[in-house]
């Protein structure tokens, strides 16, 4: 007895995906091949560029339209540099998108404390702004020892970040320079 595709779909259910076919108690060797379905079939595709080294490989993210969550990432086959290929790091981008160890809340560690406390964003940004102003006002140098005008905040420093987009880098440098900060570094030297 040969199983037709129609029969098969009737038995297994049209939504069966990939290896979920297993366990049916069937000899599937007679089943036509196209009954295997892609788990990314109904996902939305978005292009991005890998976040690790500076080759700039194209990546496609597959997002489940119902949950809005990324369900798979793979190399962008149209990309002229990587042509769909990726290294171990690029190929693991999915685990950046879906990772239970990611930090999802603002944390605060008080002076001399041994623990983190979760805090709201609003509170944190207001508190940081207060620290910035206090330190800036306390350490601001209008003139140096030679009497030259320097308008510089000597008490605050910043490192970062090559992990940000150009637009974020630009406004970050704008903010730092408006504050008068000169200790500005990023990953170029490490």
């Amino acid at each position: 007895m040969k199983l037709t595709r129609r029969d098969f779909l009737k038995i297994s259910g049209a939504a069966t995906a990939g290896l979920a076919l297993s366990g049916m108690g069937l000899d599937l060797s007679t089943v036509e091949a196209y009954s295997w379905q892609l788990r990314t079939k109904d996902a939305k595709e978005t292009t991005t560029i890998c976040c690790y080294c500076s080759v700039g490989c194209g990546i496609i993210c597959h997002t489940d339209k119902k949950t809005g969550q990324v369900i798979y990432t793979e190399g962008d086959a149209d990309h002229p540099i990587n042509g769909g290929s990726l290294c171990a790091k690029g190929a693991s981008s999915y685990q950046i998108a879906q990772n239970e160890k990611r930090m999802t809340k603002v944390l605060y560690r008080a002076p001399n404390s041994s623990k983190w406390e979760a805090k709201p964003w609003d509170w944190a940004l207001k508190e940081i702004a207060k620290r910035v102003k206090k330190t800036r006002d306390a350490t601001f140098t209008l003139k140096n020892q030679k009497g030259q005008v320097v308008n510089r905040c000597d008490g605050i420093a910043s490192v970062g970040s090559a992990a940000m987009d150009n637009e974020e880098c630009w406004i970050y440098q704008a903010m730092l320079r408006a504050l008068g900060i000169v200790y500005i570094e990023h990953q170029a030297r490490i």
Partner: peptide
């Protein structure tokens, strides 16, 4: 070494 260390240098974050 980084995906945007060229860009963050271009954008003067140094």
């Amino acid at each position: 070494g980084e995906s945007n260390v060229q860009g963050s240098t271009d954008q003067g974050l140094l």
